[in-house]
Design a protein around this nucleic acid. Structure first.
Lengths: 153, 153
DNA sequence: GGTCATAAGGTGTATATGCACTTATAATAC
DNA sequence: GTATTATAAGTGCATATACACCTTATGACC
């Protein structure tokens, strides 16, 4: 095909009102509030559930590795872990390599995760249902693609 | 050929790895960093550019109204305005109704916006180009739809 | 006109986010 | 075997985000 021209303005793509970043952040705010609201009975926020779920699925790992997986700044993760450490939901141990801080889910952490799971499912299925599975699936793929686009070069 | 990427079934949709909120936030982090990086020479961050652009397009308005437009908590906006007030890019005046704080772009603010605009365009066109205008357009629509989904009910 | 509900806004607290800089440990060079 | 470099992590600072609670100004009601 012959569409490798420099970016034009297909649908006001160069109008700040169409800013991908602003619209992404706006959606993140709105959706985060919906999920936080659903998770409220569990005493945790969306970000915290995300961390527990990642550890539950991937197992314990060094802090930097976890930050990479989450596409999150290392220092952000350090601070996001604080409330979880305080609640005893995660533990941190020094590795053989004394520089490495290995992060792991505790028993209480797994229990908290399991408690929150049905609440999360409620919020998730509501949103998936509202978008429709087909559109939702494409949406998730677009999010991944947007991330990939920023990671290259 | 179409079942190893994002889960299409409602079943896969209920795996926390497919969390819409987590993936949205992840993408927001990644894309924000890309835009912040592009905007760095202007001395402003993506969030700040978004505020200036909204005021430039919509004109001055009460704080609460602006927060509504941006789907942002009122108190978040209060604090996000602080650095802009400090730089003299926006001004705040009391309305006839003394409760209302009207937010407006200053001359310096418009100038800062105009300076940042080409930097923003660079980041935006790079991302739109990587996704392709067609896919990007659908992506933006999905973001709006996700927001709408959280606002109803 | 006084009482009271409502609407606009601010503050306290807590978490989320990332850059610049620093510290501690390991690996490598010589 | 020490000097250098590279890696993992933490801290200081600034901004972003929102809930709970408080203050003040309007407007409605009698």
């Amino acid at each position: 095909m012959t569409e490798n021209k420099p970016p034009m303005d297909p649908r006001g793509a160069l109008d700040p009102a169409s800013c991908t970043c602003a619209n992404l952040r706006k959606a993140a705010r709105a959706v985060t509030q919906a999920y936080d609201d659903a998770l409220r009975p569990s005493g945790m926020k969306s970000t915290q559930f995300t961390l527990l779920a990642a550890l539950a699925k991937l197992g314990d790992m060094p802090l930097t590795k976890l930050a990479e997986v989450l596409v999150m700044d290392r220092t952000t993760l350090t601070r996001n872990l604080k409330p979880l450490l305080g609640k005893g939901w995660v533990g941190a141990t020094r590795d053989a390599d004394q520089r490495v801080r290995r992060i792991a889910l505790t028993g209480a952490g797994r229990q908290a995760h399991d408690t929150a799971l049905p609440l999360w499912r409620s919020a998730q299925s509501r949103l998936v249902g509202r978008l429709g599975p087909e559109r939702w699936s494409g949406f998730l793929g677009d999010l991944s693609e947007a991330i990939a686009a920023t990671q290259e070069r």
